[in-house]
Design a protein around this nucleic acid. Sequence first.
DNA 1: ACGCATTTGTTCGTATGTATT
DNA 2: TAATACATACGAACAAATGCG
Lengths: 254, 254
Amino acid sequence: MPSAAHPVEPSADAGAAPAFSPLYQQIKALLVRSLQGSEWRPGEAIPSELELAARFKVSQGTVRKAIDELAAEGLLVRRQGKGTFVATHAEQTVQYRFLRLAPDEGATAPVERRVLDCRRLRAPAEVARALDLKSGEAAVLVRRLLSAQGRPVVLDDIWLPGALFKGLTAEKLSGWRGPMYELFESEFGVRMIRAEEQIRAVAADAATAQLLAVEPGAPLLSVERLSRTYGDKPVELRRGLYHTAQHHYRNELS
Amino acid sequence: MPSAAHPVEPSADAGAAPAFSPLYQQIKALLVRSLQGSEWRPGEAIPSELELAARFKVSQGTVRKAIDELAAEGLLVRRQGKGTFVATHAEQTVQYRFLRLAPDEGATAPVERRVLDCRRLRAPAEVARALDLKSGEAAVLVRRLLSAQGRPVVLDDIWLPGALFKGLTAEKLSGWRGPMYELFESEFGVRMIRAEEQIRAVAADAATAQLLAVEPGAPLLSVERLSRTYGDKPVELRRGLYHTAQHHYRNELS
DNA sequence: ACGCATTTGTTCGTATGTATT
DNA sequence: TAATACATACGAACAAATGCG
């Protein structure tokens, strides 16, 4: 068995990865493919390392390294003794994976959600550009309000590609218990795996002020999020306005 | 050679790690110790994997895993063919490791810095609490202004433990080219390795407004940072006020 | 300009430990 | 208790990048 450390020949199962990348990177790309193609769904276990090693004809260690990176990127979750699972926005234990807002004091109380609006319309230019839509293509706009202890804290405007979210209605959103991204996973097969945020301080306009129960002109945190799914494809543009009197956005640097 | 996977006996070089942790975790703790004790300084190379393996009497792979984690945490930097180096706030090439502010358009132009104040005084209660100081202990307060394209953007109030920063003066700060954290490393042996930030939107008070050249009451981003060194010891409390009209705070979620 | 030694990076194989069911 | 799956640890070999003579 001499050809251990050579790149695999682009023969049978040639993947999307450039042929001259390390084996484990190629395996990683193949795994992402299977995730993308819903071979394994969020929350499910993927095959064991040994099974995958057999399937791809590589050693367990190589599969391990591929999985290690996917786990580090948050696509997979390892659980000793149980298996390796596809990451999901469900459970995710403590809280919403992407929500970085925390109360200044006390534990993160559960938030109440109210859907203010949910409509289909043509994507404005800026939204179309961000979501890689053709100009004039359909988009869904969701507007919602998050409250903690009865006080409004977050006003979200959420833009989604219309083609991916056929049948998304205010009723469906309101009826859903649990994170919205969980609904997107289970109902529309869209999985948010990564996002970039741009944060600014802005002054509340009159309409916003009323919704968030603050004075017009009050400082608000503006959080613009572009969420991506597999292959870095953008699938959500979100603009949140956070009232940060009793809450803050937390971040860790390293 | 039967005793491969057993925890090392707490004999010769017993470390800080609990005796029942994986070998590579123990090695990791020993490496952190050496970093903490300045056996290797920022920017320097640590011994090669084989040397370390010999020193600790473990396999290269075990050292590798320890180094892998330290690299993932940002304490070390690996460079193929050259060695593994102690992370530093110097070079760090592109930009300041911890500064997340980016211009809305264009590349990150270099910022001009102006030190407004640098004085020693007793730490206020809140600062003392955050920095683990006894109440009334000495602290250094630095106030500075960052500008981009001639326009002020960031006003920083920086609190440091007086005991660690003896001899820090406005002159020393002003004379320094390069990141402030680089000065802290080289001059005071204090290395910031991790930080937590709490972000809010606030209204500019009169004094701040003048310094940042905005209207009083204008919305500003308030960024409170607690920086830590080895062993999670807090060594800096910083409060920055960012003018986010032409800039934003960027963040990545995953 | 070439080649060699060094150092990290990749890959395999094997055995054993530990958590879960 | 046994089987399964991930976690740890060892050893060995070759690849790729770097720096030096």
